[in-house]
Design a binder for these strands. Structure first.
Lengths: 206, 206
DNA sequence: TTTAATGGGTAAACAGTGTTCAATATAATT
DNA sequence: AATTATATTGAACACTGTTTACCCATTAAA
């Protein structure tokens, strides 16, 4: 049955068409200016059709954010091969992550501050039990474990989470206050943060 | 001229009436559910009247946030008298601040994630030069200076800022993921964070 | 005391939003 | 060729923030 497959493919193409138009609007005008009618106008369809491919606007946005999120997570994995020293590896991971987030501030904010269960499923950090989806915490925990003087086992995940939330806080402030601070200051903050947070690990050595 | 004063007083009362209604709606239904028409309905006036007292909805929200912000900052100052030990003082400050933020999650998010210059003037943290308005960083720096083995002077403000952004990150995640984590877990995260961030100070002793 | 002006308050409208639904056109199946 | 399924639409609903012209009561000036 090739027809069913074609139909499915066409359906997927239509979803992509909608998502791509949405992505374009978000990129150029920002998430707040995104509207169903604007998407419809851009793809020369009636607004109603979008509801045949997405449950509602939130569903559409969720779908868009999922792909953006993978870009950010990718920046973590790429740092894993940079060096063999676990401490330096962690530093490189955090550094890559920060840089990537600052390169796509709108998307980062939208994703990481999103409260919808669909997105939280991927972005939650504090939740217990290492879900396979929470890649960031998983990678961080792994690095922490490889550290020469390792963290106590029961504090491993908790510490990874603390490092993550601390870094998250810095990133959000850097984005929000980006017009108030110079590049030089920004660099100072990042470097100090990395040193402060990464070296703070020592206080939990066994 | 008592008439002018009375007029001004009445005007202020009307502003308060509107702000109070708005506050009530935000508290019970959340910021997203706040609408001009809903405020008008609550105070038995027509929606248009609100535009005689506030430029637009953003102006109204800004005004509300200003007072909410003072509540949060107040929670810092109240911790200053709790103990004489600088380290414990800092801990108490952070703890008070976190609890206060979690008691008004919507307000905290709205204020601290706000990008409008009007509000950033009060909430900016990373900006250089200790503006008298950035009370949080000022108080933190002061505590850090009193620490038995003090931080190097040139790193004082930078460290206060790092502690602040780290705490900020934890709070935002706790708010966003509040439906995913139990109170017990929440407590664990806060306690670990305080220990991790506050004791990390040691690595910068002179 | 009459007149003019100030300003609080309102109804109605505008332009926009997300969403639903009955109707229609198109394609697939029988 | 008739029937079924599905893609698509226009129109409507119930909202939103905001503006406009107008009414009316109170104050200031004549």
């Amino acid at each position: 049955m090739g027809i069913k497959e074609r139909k499915e493919r066409e359906r997927e193409e239509m979803r992509d068409l909608i998502l791509h138009a949405a992505s374009e609007i978000i990129r150029t005008e920002g998430l707040t200016k995104l509207s169903i009618r604007k998407i419809a106008l851009k793809i020369d369809y009636s607004p109603a059709i979008i509801y045949h491919y997405f449950r509602d606007k939130d569903d559409l946005i969720s779908e868009h954010m999922k792909t953006s999120y993978q870009k950010i997570i990718g920046s973590l994995a790429s740092a894993l091969v940079s060096t063999s020293d676990p401490h330096q590896k962690m530093r490189a991971m955090a550094r890559n992550y920060i840089d990537m987030a600052l390169q796509m501030p709108d998307e980062y904010m939208s994703i990481m501050l999103n409260q919808s269960p669909q997105i939280l499923e991927h972005t939650s950090v504090l939740m217990e039990g290492a879900s396979s989806k929470r890649q960031a915490i998983g990678l961080l925990s792994k690095c922490l474990k490889e550290t020469p003087s390792p963290i106590k086992d029961d504090l491993l995940e908790l510490t990874a989470q603390a490092i993550w939330t601390a870094t998250f806080g810095l990133i959000i402030r850097l984005i929000i206050e980006k017009d108030l601070i110079s590049d030089e200051q920004k660099e100072k903050h990042i470097e100090h943060h990395l040193r402060y947070v990464m070296d703070g690990v020592d206080s939990f050595k066994q």
